[in-house]
């Protein structure tokens, strides 16, 4: 909704920023791939540590570049600058940058010896991670096309998924199982929830007014 009103194609460097946001999301997707490969035992965590950090650094670099370019946009355009678009981009690049951080946290769990293989929840967590990874691509597409309908569907699905992740964490809190089993499950569920929530924040830019960005992942009672 915000972008429907304030952004337009053929307008200056805003298009370039759109492309950079797509680049950021793609880089985040690659970072999550590396992290989950380590987490689910497809590669040894130590083997991919450097690659993961490099990928995350590219996300951070893009975030700084976009911020600089938004300041230039405001400076050059003066009073005719696309202020709402600037504010939205500033907000969502922070969300996207956080995806890289949480991907690193997932890798940290694997690198610290957190082992999910052999646990009853292994398949479920692996499927959830795949769902989250797919949500990165969906978000990129929804944002690029400003597909409000698809955004609404994805937000509702993700909203339900957040509850599932919360339930998984709470289940570990109240369980008697050993910490080497419960802690990695709780941490991974928490990180997948945060990745999903940040992706939801990005998608809210397509359907929500500027002042309500980021409020989708609040507790339902606190949202409005």
């Amino acid at each position: 909704m915000v972008f429907e009103l304030f952004s337009g194609k053929g307008e200056s460097q805003i298009e370039r920023i759109e492309e950079q946001i797509q680049e950021m999301l793609a880089a985040c997707g690659r970072t999550i791939d590396i992290a989950t490969d380590a987490l689910f035992g497809r590669v040894a965590p130590a083997e991919v540590g450097t690659k993961l950090r490099k990928s995350d650094r590219s996300v951070n670099r893009l975030e700084r570049e976009i911020r600089r370019e938004l300041v230039v946009h405001a400076g050059v355009r003066g009073a005719s600058a696309d202020i709402p678009a600037i504010l939205v981009y500033m907000s969502i690049v922070k969300d996207i940058e956080r995806l890289g951080d949480y991907a690193k946290n997932l890798w940290d769990v694997a690198n610290a010896g957190g082992d999910l293989t052999g646990l009853a929840e292994f398949d479920r967590i692996r499927n959830d991670a795949a769902w989250v990874r797919e949500l990165v691509d969906r978000t990129a597409r929804i944002f690029a096309e400003r597909d409000a309908e698809a955004a609404q569907v994805a937000l509702n699905e993700a909203d339900a998924k957040l509850d599932e992740f919360d339930a998984m964490v709470i289940a570990q809190l109240t369980s008697d199982r050993p910490s080497r089993e419960g802690v990695p499950i709780a941490l991974v569920a928490r990180y997948l929830k945060r990745i999903s929530a940040h992706l939801m924040n990005v998608m809210t830019a397509v359907v929500m007014p500027l002042d309500r960005l980021d409020y989708w992942d609040e507790d339902k009672a606190d949202r409005w």
């Binding site: 972008f3 429907e4 009103l5 337009g8 355009r77 005719s80």
Partner: peptide, 11 residues
Amino acid sequence: MAESPATTERS
């Protein structure tokens, strides 16, 4: 995506 009113205004 429809062209925004802001774009028209700017030019």
